[in-house]
Design a protein around this nucleic acid. Structure first.
Length: 255
DNA sequence: AAAACCTCCAACCGCCAAGCG
DNA sequence: TCGCTTGGCGGTTGGAGGTTT
């Protein structure tokens, strides 16, 4: 195989020893993550780059949580899975301390079997069925339509036309946020709150597009907006930041 | 006590996309 | 443009450890 799994090259496979873990950990602490192809050279490990990367990401990396998933983690997992489908890395990215492999394993061993069982048992817990059987694909939570916004030099986001963020659903529910004169953080809070409500709403079909439209920005505004995007990144439910939404064409997020 | 079976998770596999020369 | 390398992802498997018979 071209991507270098190491099969047939005499590379070691199977469980990692404590000594190998130590070598890998020391190497990454010294050189940092990335450049995985250099890890075997730097450490002397007889492992392929992918094996090294996986071992680090799924086991050795600091702050990885061990043990059973808490109720709130499971709840979040169900909601995110409904939203994103089997995009485990994205789901894991929103559950602190959990890896994509953890999430995937938990789903495959705990959630999916129950879901299949529930399919055969019509009386079963509806919330579980709903959460596992109704998957809205990645761009599904679709918020309509456009907000015309500008950022001022003191980092206020303003909507010259008094723009609204509008949600429409098949239940006829509409929520509007007037974004005039909201600071970036407040706007972000509003959007996340809005998404939270979306999750809490049960199944919601939305129509339209996620999108914002903007006028012309000065260089200073672009710089300020970039900063907002970085701040936003840890709080958004999405795999893209508000900054990306703002600065990339909407189609780039339609998966 | 031990064989058979089950559960779970670490690790592997194959594919894809981006970057680079 | 093309081919190669690399990083990253989701699906799948192997096997250790636990449970049941």
């Amino acid at each position: 195989m071209t991507s270098g799994s190491g099969s047939g090259l005499g590379l070691k496979k199977g469980a990692w020893t404590a000594h190998e873990d130590m070598l890998l950990k020391n190497c990454i602490e010294k050189y940092g993550e990335g450049k995985w192809h250099l890890i075997p050279l730097r450490t002397g490990l007889n492992r392929c780059r992918k094996s090294c990367r996986l071992r680090w990401l799924n086991y050795l990396r600091p702050n990885i949580k061990r043990g059973d998933f808490a109720e709130d983690e499971i709840d979040l997992m169900l909601r995110l899975h409904r939203l994103l489908g089997n995009r485990w890395s994205l789901i894991a990215g929103r559950i602190p301390g959990r890896t994509a492999n953890d999430v995937k394993n938990y789903w495959n061993t705990h959630i999916q079997p129950r879901s299949k069982q529930h399919k055969k048992e019509p009386d079963a817990d509806e919330s579980l069925q709903d959460a596992t059987l109704t998957i809205i694909k990645p761009q599904p939570h679709i918020i309509s339509k456009t907000i015309n916004m500008c950022m001022t030099d003191n980092r206020q986001i303003v909507s010259p036309g008094g723009g609204n963020l509008t949600r429409t659903s098949n239940a006829g529910a509409n929520n509007n946020f007037n974004v005039s004169s909201l600071t970036p953080n407040v706007l972000d809070d509003k959007i996340n709150q809005y998404l939270q409500e979306l999750f809490d709403d049960g199944e919601v079909e939305l129509e339209g597009d996620i999108g914002w439209s903007f006028g012309e920005f000065s260089a200073a505004q672009v710089e300020a907006l970039h900063t907002v995007g970085q701040e936003d990144d840890n709080n958004s439910f999405f795999d893209f930041s508000l900054y990306e939404v703002m600065w990339n064409p909407i189609d780039s997020h339609q998966l």
